[in-house]
């Protein structure tokens, strides 16, 4: 594995840990979009269907896949649980979490049927997962822009998550040069995903990085 790939996976892992740690330690779900989190469950369940084929790639690969499936379900369970423990926060979330996900679901489903490596159930599901992942953050970004204020941990979560797919792009270029193969579907969706995050990245740079730089003596 090349450094971009490792750093990409680590930032993906970090983003989820930041999110869970955030919910657990502050005991609040404020600013988190349940729609985005449900979309991620769908992303991982449709992408890692190969787990059932038992032709496992590597120990690392399998452990990571199982982690992403289980942690995404766990986050949704945590958010659902807040329905009773944080009734007000949960209601506020539903009121501000108003992005129309049916359009993304329909669009990515069509994309999966049209653009895939092979017209089989597993490959269409994989393609759907890749296209869906590229836009799954939209409800979260929409919610963030609507509320105006943002909890810094939520912002760090979104940043780490966006960084992961961005780092996969140099990884794909690296693999093209060293192995001579490139997955054009993953590359195209990865570029779209990075573009979706680009505005957020710019704001993150302006607010978080520049502010911390100014705070230095």
């Amino acid at each position: 594995m090349n450094p971009f790939r490792i750093l990409g996976d680590l930032s993906h892992l970090a983003s989820i840990l930041v999110l869970i740690f955030n919910i657990k330690s502050t005991n609040t779900i404020e600013g988190i979009s349940i729609k985005t989190q449900v979309l991620y469950v769908l992303v991982f369940l449709t992408r890692y269907l190969d787990l059932f084929s038992f032709r496992l790639v590597s120990f690392y690969n399998t452990i990571m896949k199982l982690f992403f499936i289980s942690s995404s379900i766990y986050v949704v369970v945590l958010l659902q649980r807040s329905k009773t423990t944080q009734a007000v926060a949960y209601k506020t979330m539903l009121l501000t979490d108003t992005f129309k996900v049916q359009y993304i679901l329909l669009g990515t489903l069509i994309a999966a049927f049209v653009i895939n490596h092979k017209f089989t159930f597993v490959e269409i599901a994989w393609s759907f997962s890749v296209w869906l992942e590229s836009v799954a953050i939209l409800p979260q970004l929409f919610m963030l822009s609507k509320s105006g204020k943002s909890k810094s941990l939520t912002v760090h979560y979104i940043f780490a998550l966006g960084l992961y797919r961005t780092l996969y792009i140099p990884n794909w270029i690296w693999r093209y040069h060293t192995e001579g193969v490139i997955d054009k579907i993953a590359l195209a969706a990865g570029i779209i995903q990075t573009l979706v995050y680009s505005d957020f990245f710019y704001l993150y740079y302006k607010k978080v990085i520049k502010r911390s730089a100014l705070n230095l003596p």
């Binding site: 690969n61 990571m64 992403f68 193969v181 490139i182 054009k184």
Partner: peptide
């Protein structure tokens, strides 16, 4: 072909 699904990625 050069364009193919890379199965060892996440």
């Amino acid at each position: 072909s050069k364009n193919k699904r890379v199965h060892d990625e996440l």
